[in-house]
Design a protein around this nucleic acid. Structure first.
Length: 201
DNA sequence: GTCGTGATAGCCT
DNA sequence: GGCTATCACGACG
């Protein structure tokens, strides 16, 4: 039983754009007080390293960004706008600071609990259709910053789901990033209603 | 449906 | 001090 479908470290230790694209259709798992919350990843963004002006690590190695400089396959969680958290997975070999932001998942297991954690939105497509929502729905906060994705707290599984057609677009909220602003480094499943609607075209 | 606004904390010139 | 990889809500129409 308990077969592990966990993605291995070699999955994460690759070029960030590949990881961001290949994460679509994989399943994010979060063990929360004995219950596993699960969601199929349908939207990601790549933050590709020290030269990418939208990547936090372009500001250098600071306490905040240090997890990104560490080994691949770990969670980089930070607080944004004083209210919300964003979940990233660290990519590329150790020492190269890059990560993939998980922007949206389609709830799969214990959906009732995920909905509750989000203060009971009406529509299921409003449970985890955005990076802050993903963290709320899956009980992810600063305490998980630096957590390995190979333990029993949070991980990503390959359930051999065909994600369907993949599209790209510019990333959300990075107008400040100069020549990197319009890089098509956002990946999402075309037509999936759980994708965040922001800057859709 | 779209648009504007307010809330708020941690980080870093 | 200024900015931020966001969300919810209310005002429109």
């Amino acid at each position: 039983m308990s077969r592990s479908h966990k993605l291995p470290q070699s999955f994460y230790s690759r070029p960030t754009l590949e990881v961001a694209s290949n994460l679509l259709g994989k399943v994010l798992l979060r063990r929360n007080e004995g219950r596993d919350l699960a969601g199929k990843i349908v939207e990601t963004e790549a933050y590709v390293g020290p030269h990418d002006l939208a990547c936090h690590a372009s500001k250098g190695h600071t306490p905040r960004t240090s997890v990104m400089f560490g080994p691949p396959g770990h969670a980089y969680v930070y607080m944004i706008y004083g209210f919300y958290f964003c979940l990233n997975v660290v990519t590329e070999p150790k020492g190269y600071p890059a990560a993939v932001l998980v922007r949206a998942v389609e709830p799969l297991e214990n959906v009732d609990l995920m909905r509750q954690l989000r203060n009971n939105p009406q529509r299921e497509t409003n449970i985890a259709s955005g990076p802050g929502k993903v963290c709320m729905a899956m009980s992810i906060d600063k305490r998980l910053n630096g957590e390995s994705l190979f333990g029993a707290t949070i991980w990503i599984e390959d359930r051999k789901i065909d994600p369907g057609p993949i599209r790209t677009s510019p990333r959300v909220g990075v107008d400040y990033a100069g020549e990197y602003r319009d890089k098509p480094w956002r990946f999402f499943v075309e037509g999936n209603p759980h994708v965040s609607r922001v800057r859709f075209k």
